[in-house]
């Protein structure tokens, strides 16, 4: 006897659940309410990530192609994975007659980066900051290694605007 009552109760509880799924299927489909699906590759123009989104490490350059990095290597030391390598050199500053360190290459290995944010926190000059780009797919792993300072860029003088 319990066999049949089980079937009846099971069908009843199934119908209760199907009322919910049916409601979502018909009502929401017709009224377009509560539709949360994003048409991902087609909405790239309107898709905006949040300001704090950690996509990649970038270096801030102003319109004169100047950055704020003075090659102190604090970001390199703060990184737990060795994702940052700094190649620096010294040159003579004609005004002060002193040797000043400058970056030749600020190499960023995106393939090793875990987006922990310790380098950006460690930077005393706010030279590096987060970028919101998340399209990192490449066919070659080597292409993920980037040089952050743009070619021909120089360090901006300390008196200029900060961020």
């Amino acid at each position: 006897m319990s066999y049949f009552s089980d079937i009846i109760n099971g069908t009843k509880s199934l119908l209760t659940g199907m009322r919910i799924t049916g409601k979502y299927f018909f009502v929401n489909f017709l009224t377009r309410r509560d539709v949360i699906t994003e048409q991902y590759p087609d909405n790239l123009e309107t898709l905006k990530m949040f300001d704090r989104y950690r996509g990649e490490v970038t270096m801030y350059h102003n319109e004169n192609n100047e950055h704020r990095c003075d090659a102190c290597t604090l970001c390199e030391k703060a990184c737990p994975n060795g994702s940052i390598e700094i190649v620096s050199d010294k040159k003579l500053n004609p005004e002060t007659q002193r040797n000043v360190r400058y970056i030749v290459k600020h190499i960023y290995h995106l393939e090793m980066c875990t987006m922990c944010g310790l380098c950006i926190e460690a930077c005393p000059q706010d030279a590096i900051q987060w970028g919101q780009n998340f399209h990192h797919v490449q066919y070659d792993r080597g292409k993920l290694t980037k040089v952050l300072n743009k070619p021909g860029s120089t360090i901006m003088s300390k008196t200029k605007e900060k961020k």
């Binding site: 109760n9 099971g10 009843k12 509880s13 209760t16 919910i20």
Partner: peptide, 15 residues
Amino acid sequence: PEYDKLLSNNIIFQK
């Protein structure tokens, strides 16, 4: 409560 209707109270799921 919808979760309960959909899954928790379903006899087949309970069995």
